[in-house]
Structures are given as C-alpha cells and as structure tokens.
C-alpha cells in the first residue's frame, strides 16, 4: 500500500500567543514547534495500516525549511520517507491543499491521512479540500476506522450527541480524530534512523491567496471576577448573582 500522511508544524499547545510585527500573524519568538497532535493519530494509523498490509509510508509537509524537523518526527515514529514541499510564503488552506494535491496527484496514493484539524489555524478543512482537488472520497474526523481487504472503508465519526457510521472506499483521504489509536512514542533508535531517512524536496507552483488576513488581534482579556465566598455557605449568594446580575438563570 502506498500511504501518505500530511503533517502540520505547529506551536506547542502551551504557547502564549502574541501578535507579530505585521499585525497579521503570530510572533514566532520563543515558540516551540511540534508535530500537530492530531497528526500523531494520522501517522499511527498509517503505520498500523502498513504493518497489516505492507507498503510504504511517506510523511508530507508544506512549509519553510523549519518544517523538516516535524517531518523527522514522523520518520522517527516509523514512516519510511519524507516529502517536503518547500515554500517560505505562507499560504491559506486552499493554497496549502493545492500544493499538496499537485504533489500527490501522480503518486498513486492508496490512502492519504490528515489530522482532524491543525491547531494553529484550526481549519478542519484539509482532508475535504484535498479529497475534492484529487477527486477522491474523504472521510473526516474518524475516531474508528476499518479498511477492508477489498478497499472498502467503514469509519465512525463523532456528531453532535452521538456517533455516525460512514462507509467509503479507497483510494481516499481520511482525517484522524483522537480515539482512533494510541500514537507510539518515537524510540531512540527510531530517532537515530530518522536522520538517515530520505526527504525529497519539491517546489510548489505559484499561488495567490484566496483568503486574505486583514488583521490579527488578541481576544478581550477576561478579568478575574469575584470570589463569591468559601464552601457551601456561598451557594445562596451565587444563585442570586447568577439570577440578578448575570441573568443566566
């Protein structure tokens, strides 16, 4: 099986986001970059599929040179090779998908895994964009997945208040949700091997953003409210405040 995993290089979840000098993106100073948490589930799903069916797992990322570090994390988990679509020009999701699609279109993918969402721009859209651009089915936010020998897919996805069962078939783009598996930790040996695994560089064709960022701001800071009191004696006052002041009950 020819398996691809799209990974995204994102600020660590503990990052205190500050607006950068351009007023349109974050200030990268002091930021620790990680493999997008949802992409760990995607890499794990790809590795398990390879282990069950044989084949090859390629980790793909669009971005500047710094993203190689994230590609190597996927390689350290056990992927076979990397594919780096090099660009210093940040793109909107449509443009990122376009670069991924043009790179993957002649590579005969059986499955392309993504994460449900990249925790930087929180788009939740890549799997759908890629599926449509490559004319492949997409199954998103899968928290359970079975790919059968005949290529048919059965997945479960979370919907409001419950679960939905979705069927589809390979080749397809699938986005991973927490619960799909338990991502393995890279072992020291894996980290050493990752340094020698090949990463192919490709250049994307030019693109003009379709979504223009006008400005980035910080949300209004919520100031700490009041401590109503201590212990169960305070509940009477709390209920009164919720009714009279906050007007939520």
């Amino acid at each position: 099986m020819n398996i691809f995993v799209c990974v995204s290089h994102v600020p660590d979840t503990t990052t205190k986001v500050q607006v950068g000098e351009d007023g349109k993106s974050i200030d990268p100073s002091g930021v620790t970059w990680i493999l997008n948490p949802y992409d760990e589930y995607a890499v794990e799903a790809a590795l398990q599929l390879k282990e069950a069916r044989e084949g090859e797992v390629t980790v793909v990322c669009f971005g500047p040179d710094a993203v190689k570090e994230t590609i190597r994390k996927g390689l350290a988990m056990g992927a076979d090779k990397g594919l780096h679509i090099k660009s210093d020009q940040p793109r909107d999701s449509f443009g990122t998908a376009k670069a991924l699609a043009e790179t993957l279109k002649d590579r005969e993918a059986d499955v392309i895994f993504c994460g449900r969402q990249s925790i930087d721009y929180d788009g939740w859209q890549m799997a759908g964009l890629l599926g449509e651009m490559l004319d492949l089915p997409s199954v998103t936010v899968a928290s359970k997945l079975e790919i059968k020998e005949d290529g048919s897919i059965e997945a479960e996805r979370e919907i409001e208040g419950g679960m939905e069962t979705v069927v589809s078939k390979l080749p397809a783009v699938i986005s991973a949700q927490k619960g799909l598996n338990d991502p393995r930790y890279p072992k020291l040996q894996g980290i050493m091997q990752a340094k020698r695994k090949p990463i192919e560089d490709v250049e994307p064709s030019p693109y003009k953003n379709r979504v223009e960022v006008l400005e980035m701001s910080k949300p209004p800071v919520k100031s700490a409210g009041k401590i109503v009191g201590e212990g169960p004696d305070a509940v009477k006052e709390l209920v009164k405040l919720l009714h009279e002041e906050a007007k939520v009950i």
């Binding site: 986001v17 925790i119 930087d120 929180d122 006008l214 980035m216 701001s217 910080k218 949300p219």
Partner: peptide, 10 residues
Amino acid sequence: VYAGKALIKV
C-alpha cells in the same frame, strides 16, 4: 485561531 488565543479578520 490558535484555539481562541488570537482572532483574525479575513
């Protein structure tokens, strides 16, 4: 964006 730690106008 960034889980609500920033907002963008687009």
